[in-house]
Simulated assay, not measured.
Amino acid sequence: MTYRVLILGGRGRIGSAVANDILSHTQANITITGRSPGTNLAVDERVRFLQLDLTEVEKLKDAIAQFDLVIHCAGPFHHRDTQVLEICINQGVNYLDVSDHRSYTQKALNLHEKAVNAGVNAIINTGIFPGISNSLVRQGIEQFDIPEKIHLSYLVSGSGGAGVTVMRTTFLGLQYTFAAWINGKWCLIQPYSDRETINFPHPYQRSGVYWFDMPETFTLPAYFPTVKTVITKFGSVPDFYNHLTWITAHIFPKWLMQRNETIEFLSHISHRMTDFTNKFTGIGVAVRAEVTGQKDGKTVVYVSTLLHENTAVAAGIGTGSIAKLLLESKLKHPGVSPVEAALTTELFTQIIRERKIEINSHWVET
């Protein structure tokens, strides 16, 4: 059987990476969408293009009905509604997305029971972070008798190989305070605050990261209830981008940062800057997942790290690999779930090995 996959926003850097991963590892036929004519994917007989705006609801419904799997890559997700997900549930079509914001995640999780009743597998927050990062955490959690603390650190070189949409996501994430689970209670956090120097693997070494609002800040404590603290921090290479982002988050007036034209201006300027610095820094990503807890009566720390030379490709792997599992019926988890709830460590290890990605893990005694 030849499966049919619809990728909404498939012409973007992340959407293209997802499509390429699926083409490389499955025999599925793919249709990618965009609001304007044409496609920037390499010509492939298994790829088709559909001009589609998500506001064209009836056309969207007709399109989704023809596919076995829908992958939503049309970000940023800060202001997205759950219309695509609801149509998939109503039509019994499995769903993935690369969403990366709590507002969308919360709205999607509210549809869990509806998806369960429809027998639809809807897995959200796939990609690299969130996505592969969440699976690193689950792998670490399973090493403990009682896991107590999660500390996630993400580092991206330059643009990460992504487009302007990812820049928009970054600046949108600086607009408001957010709640984080710290010492068993919800605390308000200022975005891009509390710089911390983290030891990443070569070539990154010691690099600065800052608090950043990510959906795993609240999905991880929900699915791992003994955990009392979840920290999510993000940083850029070269380091001066961190200082510019800090200034944007803490010095610029909030009313200015909440204007769409400001976000657009900063996003395009930043993308032009990274186009230049990419030549020196590369476009890679480093993820460090640190879990602290009780094992054999001792407090210990389990650290896992993962590197990839292209952040966008890594995101494509995270989503594309789960797509393959769904298409082959190796992953069945009806409902709306983040990656850490749906993907077992056994399956995660399998797909990481298939993609020849290396994970380094070690124990640290406190």
Rank of each mutant, 00 (worst) to 15 (best):
V5K: 02
G12P: 04
I22H: 07
N29H: 10
I30K: 04
G38N: 07
T39D: 03
A42M: 12
R46Y: 03
V47P: 00
R48K: 10
E58W: 07
K59S: 15
K61V: 11
K61Q: 13
I64L: 01
V70H: 01
H79Q: 10
Q91Y: 09
V93C: 09
N94H: 14
V98A: 13
A108K: 01
N117W: 12
F129R: 09
G158K: 01
G160A: 06
G161W: 01
G173W: 08
Y176K: 14
A180Y: 05
Q190L: 13
R195N: 08
R206H: 14
D213L: 10
M214S: 10
E216L: 02
P225H: 04
V237N: 10
P238F: 04
H243M: 11
T262V: 13
I269K: 15
M273K: 12
N278G: 05
K279D: 15
V287N: 06
A289F: 06
A289M: 06
H308W: 07
V313N: 00
S321H: 14
A323E: 03
L327A: 00
K330P: 08
H333R: 12
H333S: 12
G335C: 01
V339M: 05
E340K: 09
T344Y: 07
E346G: 10
I351W: 08
R353A: 14
K356M: 09
N360E: 13
